[in-house]
Computed example of a mutant assay.
Amino acid sequence: MEVEIMEFNKSKILEIVRRQLAIDMNCNPEDFINEGIVFCEAKLNQGRRMFDRQSPFLEIATMGKSIVVSGDSEILAKVKPLLENKTREDIFVAPFIFGHTIYYVPDYSRLKKLPMPSGFSYHIKEGNETHDLYEIPGFENAIQYDKSHPRPDVIAVYAMYDDEIVAMAGASADCNLMWQIGIDVLPRFRNRGLATSLVSNLAIMIMERGILPYYGTASSNISSQSVAYRSGFIPTWMCSYKNIFDGKAPYDNDIKIIF
């Protein structure tokens, strides 16, 4: 049964995010609205977002107040004394993490279907139909290109110019509560409003199914952040991207600073 989009509001959206992050990080939803730092041992809980995890695992997240640090027990024992008296800003520049991801959810007061730019045709594929698009390279942010992916593609909305697909927004079923949106536009068709229109329309399609859409981008990717904002999304949480404990941090073997 299709769920009306009106069942969503700001309070419900934030509640869903807290519930999902609590599953992912093995903490309580309330941990994200209190002050201070919460340390919790990581577990592969049922219902988590099906991302690959580094081993050893450490992830740090905030929704703006508290900071939740989730990690394997041996890592927590080492990093807790280093972090427990630090500010939020200091924690997120700790030398053992690198990269930050900002996640967005719909701003209920601004989200609306934006008109599609003229001169293009628009198409939708759902479920297994999205596999037809795997033959077309260049849209790695929008679709998985993997029929057996643990976060399967569920919807793709794309724009065509003549006989060519030039822009695509896709949704992956990361978990039961939330589907993630990714967007790609071919370089010569950018700055025409395709990204914001596709993302906003896809977001509403997802919410009409009773699922919360979300959008993630690197903290340095200003263009992607602009798309999120123009599409009716608002930044809601930030988390560390990776840690260095597996020895795969960029520049680890390249930079030797000598004073």
Rank of each mutant, 00 (worst) to 15 (best):
L82W: 00
N28F: 10
L82I: 01
E41L: 01
F32Y: 09
S73M: 07
E41V: 12
G64S: 05
E41N: 09
A77V: 07
S70R: 01
D24P: 07
P29L: 00
G47Q: 06
A22G: 10
E59K: 11
R18C: 05
S73Y: 04
F51W: 09
E84I: 07
S73P: 00
L14M: 15
E74H: 10
L58C: 04
A42F: 15
I13Y: 11
S11R: 14
V17Y: 07
S70M: 00
V68G: 01
F51M: 11
P29N: 03
N45T: 10
E15D: 14
D31C: 07
G36D: 13
V68F: 04
R18I: 03
I33D: 15
D52L: 14
V68L: 02
V79N: 08
F39V: 01
S66T: 02
G64M: 10
I23Q: 13
S66G: 02
I33V: 14
N26P: 10
R48K: 14
V17H: 03
I23L: 15
L83K: 04
Q54V: 08
G36R: 14
E84G: 07
S55M: 03
A94Y: 15
S55L: 02
K78Y: 10
E59P: 01
V93S: 14
R18P: 02
K78N: 10
I67K: 00
A61Y: 03
N45G: 10
D90M: 11
F39G: 05
F51D: 09
A42C: 13
D90F: 06
V79Q: 07
L58K: 03
L76V: 00
E15H: 13
R53D: 08
E89C: 12
I33G: 12
R18W: 02
D52T: 14
K43S: 12
F32P: 02
